[in-house]
Simulated scan of single mutants.
Amino acid sequence: MTTHPIALAIHGGCGTLPKAEMSEAEWAEAKADLALSLKAGWAVLGKGGTAVDAVEAAVLVMEDSPHFNAGHGAAFNADGEHELDASIMDGSNLAAGALCCVKRIRNPVSAAKALMRQGDPLLLAGPAGDTFAEAEGLDMVENEYFSTDRRRKNLSSMKIRELVGSASEASEAEKHGTVGAVARDRDGHLAAATSTGGYTNKPPGRVGDSPIIGAGTYARDGRCAVSGTGKGEFFIRYCIGHEIASLMAYKGLSLEEATRQAIAELTTHKIGAGLVAVGADGSIVAPYNSEGMYRGWITPDGFVHVATHGEVELAGQVEAA
């Protein structure tokens, strides 16, 4: 059987804070968590595990970190609650699972994978998603578990902006944030997973692109796997994940050119957007148009790369592919 070099890339959202808004220690912690996420996913792939299990493992680490808008550290909606969205997709057979507006699942990405394994339905919303996860024996928490002081400040800031009419001027960091991972395993299969708390001060019940297959998450063997971050409403309108795969399949574009075109479409709307993607050949891209994007990848030689703004840093080395 032919084996393929493994590949893995992650993002922690394009809603990256300006450098001055976090201490050096906080930036170091965020980068350390990106590295931990990469190492978790790489460990799965290195042992011959599936791309699906690898993207779940990588996203789990970011859901548990307070530095990203997913799981613990998720944004508040307008009612001061957390409503979480997540999805996962297997490029080998187009199987997928997704949840939206769930409130009690510690790690929504694992619930999405459990739903995918069940096979039907593909997407569950609200209390039905929480009930499903509980029945599956997944870790359940009170909604307050997801709260952090930084997100409370973001909510206060957005409510003030709403009152004075300056909400459109808010930074990406005040508004958005998402985490995601894409991978190729030794069998050449692709997978993608995405998880988010949505945007700060969102209306209760709002669903973004992260749990919408073909928009914020898409994986298809022979083409690519994509996980996006940014203003979800536009990712949905353009079906960004599927669009990238289609540009590659129908126009013969490279992964780099297809993703560049997709981000350019979103840029015309003056919205912050970014994504990570892996091609069928194991190539990796991480384009974005905002001030920064939490992101990382591991090269075949095992070097771990992480970044928040323009500069990419080396964050250690793991076993080579």
Rank of each mutant, 00 (worst) to 15 (best):
A264R: 13
A98R: 15
T259K: 06
P204Y: 06
H176P: 07
S87R: 08
L123V: 15
S65D: 00
S283L: 02
V164I: 02
T50I: 08
T148G: 08
G228E: 12
C14L: 00
A114I: 11
T194Q: 07
N154W: 13
E144G: 02
A245Y: 01
K153H: 03
P121E: 11
H269E: 12
E174I: 04
A32C: 15
G12Q: 05
S37P: 12
L255W: 01
D149K: 00
R161I: 02
V207K: 02
A225E: 09
N93A: 11
A95S: 15
T268G: 13
D149W: 02
L122Y: 13
G188A: 13
V44P: 05
A215E: 14
V226Y: 15
A133S: 11
G208Q: 12
A264V: 06
S290M: 03
Y288F: 00
A74D: 06
A96R: 04
G198D: 10
A173R: 04
G292E: 00
P203Y: 15
I236P: 10
V278K: 04
V276F: 15
W297D: 05
P287K: 10
S254C: 10
E29P: 06
C100S: 03
D149Q: 04
E81A: 14
A25M: 03
E257W: 00
Q317D: 06
M1E: 12
M89A: 02
S290D: 00
R186G: 10
T3G: 03
T196D: 05
H242M: 08
C14W: 13
M22T: 07
D185N: 04
E311M: 10
N107F: 12
A249P: 03
V278Q: 05
E56W: 00
A75T: 11
A125K: 14
A280T: 05
V109T: 03
G198M: 01
R184V: 02
L155M: 13
E257N: 03
V141Q: 14
P204M: 09
K103N: 14
Y250R: 14
R223T: 11
A135E: 01
Y145I: 09
